[in-house]
């Protein structure tokens, strides 16, 4: 956790993402055009969110096996940073959507209701709400051990329920969003080889950045609560 090579790797990969992502050649598809470069930001945010939520789940399981409070603190912070990544994913998605789905002849306000009904947007919103509920639950209990135990149980339960809401149901319902039959970012036919060169490093870079932010928050909390440990 305290080694520095992966922090340097994260910065280098993100620098590469910004430089390569904006300058390297991309396929120009109808309706997408240059906005396809948003793949390096929008999709990576959701990847990072999912990875951080998974780390949070693992920490909750570890807490229930060992009852060491540091794992619970880690689980909480990974969930928080995962939520931040999800909100950023929404923001980048909104920018992308306004160029590709928005009807140029109508003001955004009028086409909003048809776009907001998109099952993938709703699924992601549910995912974020689940983790907001986790934080509400966690902050509503005063006793430290009880808080850790109950919120870990809820975290594991919530992760299991998260799966249908973002992986299964959006694939059943009709949708404009790409990724109806599998994962387009990982599919060998769906993504251009030139884009793959930037996309995979970008995923790793953003995820490492998220982990870095989280470890700082965890260290801060551990120092603050040192007298209780």
């Amino acid at each position: 956790m305290y080694k520095s090579w992966w922090k340097i790797a994260s910065v280098l990969l993100l620098l590469y993402t910004f430089v390569g992502g904006f300058l390297m050649d991309v396929p120009r598809l109808p309706a997408l055009g240059e906005t396809i470069r948003n793949l390096y930001f929008h999709v990576c945010m959701w990847f990072a969110m999912m990875i951080l939520f998974t780390i949070s789940l693992v920490n909750s399981i570890r807490y229930l096996r060992t009852f060491k409070l540091k794992y619970d603190i880690a689980a909480r912070h990974y969930a928080t940073v995962g939520v931040v990544m999800g909100v950023l994913g929404y923001a980048t998605g909104a920018i992308w959507m306004s160029y590709t789905w928005g009807d140029p002849n109508n003001p955004t306000f009028e086409s909003f209701s048809s776009i907001a009904r998109e099952p993938k947007l709703i699924g992601a919103a549910i995912a974020l709400l689940i983790y907001f509920a986790y934080m509400v639950l966690r902050d509503s209990i005063n006793d430290m051990d009880k808080r850790a135990r109950i919120s870990s149980v809820y975290n594991i339960f919530a992760y299991a329920m998260l799966f249908p809401s973002i992986w299964i149901i959006p694939r059943i319902l009709p949708s404009l969003h790409p990724g109806q039959t599998g994962n387009p970012a990982l599919d060998m036919q769906d993504i251009d080889n030139r884009m793959r060169l930037v996309f995979y490093p970008a995923v790793i870079g953003w995820t490492l950045l998220g982990v870095w932010i989280t470890t700082l928050k965890i260290r801060f909390t551990l120092l603050k609560e040192k007298h209780l440990m």
Partner: peptide, 27 residues
């Protein structure tokens, strides 16, 4: 069970439950 252990009223159950149940309700 979770809400009872947290010694909260039924309000926390709605907060915890609504996001979890929406996918199933939708289906």
């Amino acid at each position: 069970a979770i809400a009872a252990r947290a010694q909260q009223n039924a309000a926390i159950m709605a907060v915890l439950g609504f996001p979890l149940i929406i996918p199933q309700l939708l289906l």
